[in-house]
Computed example of a mutant assay.
Amino acid sequence: MKGRAQTTSASRAATRPIAASDMMHVVLAFEDNRLVSDLFGQFDQNLALIEQRLAVEAIAHGNQVTIRGNKTSTGQAKLALESLYTRLQGGHDITPGDVDGAIRLAEVAEAQLSLPTMEPKSRMAFAQIATRRKTLVARTAAQDAYIRAMDRSDLTFGVGPAGTGKTFLAVAYAAALLERGEIDRMILSRPAVEAGERLGFLPGDMKEKVDPYLRPLYDGLNEMMPPEKLERGLESGMIEVAPLAFMRGRTLSNAVVILDEAQNTTTMQMKMFLTRLGENSKMIVTGDPSQVDLPAGQMSGLREAMKILDGVEGISRVTFTETDVVRHELVGRIVSAYDNESRQRLEAKERRQAAEAAQDNKE
C-alpha cells in the first residue's frame, strides 16, 4: 500500500532464524523519502535510541533500514518504526519522547493487540487524544489503559508516581471533549495543602493567592489549547481552575472535573468532591499515594476512597509504576530508588515487630 512502511521481499526471505541461532534480520523500505529523514532522526538519532533500548543493530541506507537482532527484539523494532512512520504520515512530528513511547508500546504489543478493541495484528493501534493543537498517543500500556478508562467510566482514578502523564492526559482528554462540544465546561482543581486551604496570608488577590498551587494545571491547558481560546474560556467560566475548597456545595453537570494531587485530600474533602458529580459529567482523580503531604497521622482521602470504592460499577482505576515514567529516564530510576528504600524500611519494621512478638511469647 502506497505510503506505508513495507517489508521488502528480501526481508521476508531473511526473517527466518539464521542457522540454529535466534538471530534474524529484516529490511524495511519507506516509500515517502520526505518523511524518512524525520523517521530516522538527525544523524540517525532515532535509530540509535532503538538500537540502545532493544539491543538490535539498525543500519540505514537511503529509504531503507536493516534491523538485526534476536527474533523478539527485531520484531519490536519493526513495529516501533512502522508506528512512527504512520504518525509522520498523519502530519504529526515525532520527538525523542514519541520514539521512546513507540518502543515501550512495541515491547507490550503482543499482549495489547490481543484485546478486542485493537486493530488486526501487525498494526499497533493504541489510544490517542486529538485536540486542535496536537494529537497525543499513549506512550505506555498504562497510559493506553488510562485513556480508555476515561472514555469508558464516569469516574476514573489514575494513581502512581510523578512523570507518568496522569494529569497531562486528563487535561488533554477534557480539552478534547470541550472542543467537540460533548461537555459545556471543564473544571480543574487541587487541594492547597501547604497553605491549609487558608490562603489569606499570601499576598495579592484571590487569583494570585491560588495560582502557585494550580500552575501545573495551567501548563497542561497551555499545551492543549490556543492561547486566545484558553483566555476566552477562562474569562467566560467555560474553563475553571480552582482550589478544592471552592467545590463545596456545587453540582457539576455537563462537565469534566479533574482533581489533581488527590493524595493530599482528607477523607471529608474527597467525599465532598466525589459527590459533586452531576448529569452528563465525568470525574478524573489523579495522585501519588507515596507523596502525601498531610499532617502525620491523617488519612489520605485518595487512599481511603480507592479502598472503599474498589469494585463499584462505573469506576475505573489505573495504576502507574516507575516503568511508566515518560519524563527524563533518570526520573524513573529516582522513583525506583525511593520505592526500594521504602520497601526496605517496611521490611525492617516487619522484622522488628516479628522479633518483638516472638520475645513477648517467650516471656
Results as ranks from 00 to 15, higher is better:
Val56Asn: 07
Val56Asp: 03
Gln42Phe: 10
His25Glu: 14
Ile50Asp: 00
Ile67Val: 12
Asp93Gly: 04
Leu88Thr: 11
Glu31Asp: 14
His61Trp: 11
Asp44Cys: 02
Gly90Gln: 14
Gly69Leu: 00
Arg53Val: 08
Asp100Gly: 00
Ala102Leu: 05
Glu82Met: 15
Val36Tyr: 09
Met24Ile: 14
Asp22Ile: 01
His92Phe: 08
Leu49Gln: 05
Ser37Ile: 07
Phe30Ile: 05
Val99Arg: 04
Val108Leu: 03
Ser21Phe: 04
Leu84Glu: 09
Thr66Cys: 09
Thr86Asp: 14
Arg34Thr: 08
Asp44Ser: 05
Leu47Val: 06
Arg104His: 14
Phe43Asn: 15
Thr86Cys: 05
Ala55Leu: 08
Ile59Val: 15
Ser83Asp: 15
Lys78Pro: 00
Arg34Ile: 02
Phe30Asp: 04
Asp38Met: 11
Ser83Ala: 11
Phe30Gln: 07
Ala106Trp: 08
Ile50His: 03
Leu49Lys: 07
Gln42Asp: 10
Ala48Phe: 01
Thr74Leu: 04
Glu82Asn: 14
Ile103Trp: 09
Leu54Asn: 04
Glu51Gln: 13
Leu39Thr: 04
Val36Asp: 03
Ala48Thr: 11
Gln52Gly: 02
Val56Thr: 08
Leu35Ala: 00
His25Trp: 15
Ala29Val: 13
Glu57Ile: 09
Arg87His: 02
Ala106Ser: 10
Gly62Val: 13
Leu49Met: 15
Gly101Asp: 01
Glu107Asp: 04
Gly75His: 05
Glu110Arg: 15
Arg34Asn: 12
Asn63Met: 07
Arg104Gly: 00
Asn63His: 11
Glu31Cys: 01
Ile103Ser: 07
Leu39Lys: 08
Asp38Glu: 09
Gly91Val: 02
Thr86Lys: 10
Ala102Gln: 09
Ala58Asp: 01
Leu79Val: 11
Val65Thr: 09
Leu84Ile: 11
Asp44Met: 01
Ala58Trp: 05
Ser21Gly: 00
Met24Pro: 01
Met24Gly: 00
Arg68Tyr: 11
Gln76Ile: 07
Asn46Gly: 02
Ser21Gln: 01
Val36Lys: 08
Ala48Gln: 10
Ile50Phe: 06
Val27Tyr: 02
Ala80Phe: 08
Asn46His: 15
Ala80Ile: 12
